[in-house]
Design a protein around this nucleic acid. Structure first.
Lengths: 178, 178
DNA sequence: CCGTTAGTTCAGTAATTTCTGAAACATCAG
DNA sequence: CTGATGTTTCAGAAATTACTGAACTAACGG
């Protein structure tokens, strides 16, 4: 990211986001492209991305493929320009929703299945080991359910969870829920 | 993980967990050690871990250091044995809590600060760019707040969030919360 | 003291992941 | 068709990350 088509702030943002990505198992370039598309007011094409991020064209191609595979980036065409242009939703909640959905599908659900299989196959194990496998499975199942519930929430519904009342009051056992 | 001190199920579990770790930016060995300590009924020492996971002693030493740094593993001493032994909480919620707390502290909070700084420095940017930076910042601040709230919840409080009522009813704007 | 056991550190190596450049493919205009 | 433009693929190179083995520190028992 050397070419200075980007403002100082934007560059900081994109850099930081790439850094963040790597910490969560996301390729730096992939994360940077996504950050750039988020902050950009209009769709960018592959050459824009090459210039802004200073990586090889082929890298952009692969990374974009990855991002579209994650349903995070969509291909658009601008009138009178036959190059592919790319966008990502500018609504943060929507992005969150998509990421949660995909990570659940790709990583969480298979693990849940695997845990389930382990519990089934745990006949010879000690009672305590079985208990722990079951607990972990149950925990993950709860998280999975929450993820699914989050998916159907409207944008910005998150606000309802924070504040003086917040999660705390919600989760404390008071009404006989569930 | 070749030496067969482990049952089939345990081996599957540890392997899968290591795999999962790598996808979320956690070193495979670190994740495997943690999995093994979780599933193990009693504290294990470094040699146990070497045997079970078939990695170098030095690797165990480093990984354990990492895990204790994350407050996920604690050192215990068994009477009459001067070797270090290690444990991790067997309560899943507790583990979740600790991981959330640490990842927030190490990755989330600094990002939040960085975003804040960017917003402050975004004078020259277009109104839309400023809006997006602010939105992302606000979103992350909400998540951060939720993480903090989760920390003070009792074990297993998670159950309150799932089920027929669940997150959905909680988040839908109905009572004038926050 | 000295030998033994336990734990740590770190330079070098191995493995993995990421990135590039060249070639192939595709589409369009003339 | 042919040339121009845009995109994808993939083998190998580069960079990063993980792991090992050897050397070191520490603490204890006799």
């Amino acid at each position: 990211m050397t070419k200075d088509r980007l403002s100082k702030t934007t560059r900081t943002f994109v850099t930081h986001w790439g850094e963040m990505g790597t910490r969560w198992g996301i390729n730096r370039t992939v994360a940077q492209i996504h950050a750039l598309l988020y902050i950009s007011e209009k769709p960018l094409n592959a050459d824009d991305l090459v210039e802004c991020l200073d990586v090889a064209r082929s890298n952009i191609s692969m990374s974009i493929k990855e991002l579209t595979g994650w349903s995070l980036v969509t291909l658009v065409h601008l009138p009178g320009d036959r190059r592919d242009h790319f966008t990502t939703p500018s609504d943060v909640w929507e992005l969150f929703r998509v990421i949660i959905t995909e990570r659940k599908r790709r990583e969480f659900d298979p693990t849940l299945q695997a845990m389930s299989a382990m519990v089934s196959a745990s006949a010879g194990e000690s009672a305590e080991v079985v208990r722990r496998l079951k607990e972990l499975h149950a925990f993950m199942a709860s998280i999975a359910e929450i993820m699914d519930q989050l998916k159907v929430l409207p944008p910005s519904a998150l606000a309802g969870l924070v504040g003086a009342a917040g999660v705390f009051s919600t989760l404390m056992p008071k009404r006989g829920s569930s």
